[in-house]
């Protein structure tokens, strides 16, 4: 399966979806005016990956900022991952947040309470 790779910009995150390794990463800022357009290929990639997912998928999310229009799209990403887990494949979600960034920790907890996959909250120090 092809790797989905998108370089980050000041408004959109770096994306690395590696199907052969089962590693999914989103990192940086997600504050575009049109988030649906940005997230569409990510959601489509995950739909394709769901059909041939690895026994273990590792998800690393490290966002510095995201806007509310991205927040819905990020939930769509998590819902695709939830579907993979429901098909009895393992999914681990690591939610990274900067030291003392309680708002970002809380945002992770909000997602965790909506989807049925436990998050590992990882504070990035320094």
């Amino acid at each position: 399966m092809d790797t989905l790779s998108i370089e980050g910009t000041p408004k959109t995150p770096t994306v690395r979806f590696n199907g052969s390794k089962g590693i999914i990463e989103i990192k940086g800022r997600s504050i575009p005016e049109n988030s649906i357009e940005f997230y569409k290929p990510l959601v489509e990639w995950l739909e394709a990956y769901a059909k041939e997912s690895k026994p273990q998928t590792q998800v690393n999310i490290q966002l510095e900022y995201f806007n509310t229009s991205s927040s819905k799209c990020i939930l769509d990403v998590f819902k695709k991952l939830e579907a993979i887990q429901k098909a009895n494949q393992g999914v681990t979600i690591n939610w990274f947040y900067d030291e003392d960034d309680e708002d970002m920790l809380e945002a992770g907890q909000d997602y965790e309470s909506i989807i049925r996959i436990p998050f590992k909250m990882i504070e990035v120090v320094g």
């Binding site: 005016e33 649906i36 509310t68 229009s69 927040s71 819905k72 939930l75 909000d110 909506i114």
Partner: peptide
Amino acid sequence: KEMYKFILNYQKLSSKGGGGLGLIDIARK
């Protein structure tokens, strides 16, 4: 927080991409 999560989970994005969450998010912060 509960209102935010409810809208996040149950309401569709508008064509403008806004989800009705902006003001709630601002108020939370």
